[in-house]
Simulated scan of single mutants.
Amino acid sequence: MIMKYLGLLLFLLPYTCFAQLTIKGKVISEADGKPIPYASVFLNNETIGTKSADDGSFVLKNLNAGQHDLIVSVVGYEGYHKTLMVNTNVELPDIKLLPKTLILGEVKIGVDAKREKKLKEFKEQFLGTSAYASQCEILNPEVLDLKYNRDERILTGNSDDFLEIANNALGYKLKYLIANFVMDKHESKLTYEGSVLFEEMEGSDFQLKQWKKNRRDVYFGSTMHFLREVLANRVDSNYAVESKRIISSYSTSKGFASNRRESSDVLRTVDYVHPTEKPGIFALGYNTNLDVFYKPRTANGKAAKVHPQYATVSFTDPYLYFDTNGTILNPMGAVFSYAWGNSRVAQLLPIDYWPDGK
Rank of each mutant, 00 (worst) to 15 (best):
I2T: 11
I2H: 00
L9G: 03
F11K: 15
L12G: 09
P14S: 08
Y15I: 04
T16S: 08
F18R: 14
Q20I: 00
E30L: 10
P37S: 12
Y38A: 14
V41N: 09
N44L: 02
N44S: 13
N45Q: 15
I48G: 02
S57P: 03
F58L: 07
F58T: 11
K61N: 14
N62T: 04
V72H: 06
V72G: 04
V75R: 15
K82Q: 15
N87L: 12
N89W: 07
N89C: 02
N89E: 12
E91R: 14
L97Q: 10
P99A: 07
V107I: 15
K108Q: 11
A113W: 03
A113D: 11
E116I: 02
K117S: 11
E121R: 15
E121V: 11
Q125E: 12
Q125R: 11
L127V: 04
T129P: 00
A131V: 09
Q135S: 13
E137S: 11
P141N: 06
E142V: 05
L146P: 10
N149S: 10
F162V: 09
N167M: 04
N168F: 00
N168W: 01
N168Y: 09
Y176H: 10
A179E: 14
F181D: 07
V182H: 10
D184I: 03
S195E: 13
V196Q: 07
E199Y: 10
M201Y: 02
G203L: 07
Q207N: 06
L208F: 02
K209G: 06
W211Y: 15
N214M: 02
R215C: 03
R216S: 11
G221W: 01
L227A: 05
V230S: 07
L231H: 01
R234V: 00
R234D: 09
V235W: 07
D236Q: 13
Y239G: 00
A240K: 11
K244V: 02
R245M: 06
R260G: 00
E262N: 12
S264I: 01
D265M: 08
Y272C: 01
H274G: 04
P275D: 03
T276F: 03
P279E: 12
N289V: 00
D291Q: 13
D291T: 13
K295C: 01
P296S: 05
T298L: 12
A299L: 11
A299S: 12
K302M: 11
A303Q: 14
Q309Y: 08
Y310S: 07
D317L: 06
P318S: 13
Y319D: 11
L320D: 01
L320Y: 01
L320C: 10
L320W: 01
I328G: 03
A334N: 09
A339R: 12
W340Y: 06
V345H: 09
Q347M: 14
Q347E: 14
I351D: 13
Y353D: 09
P355F: 05
G357A: 05
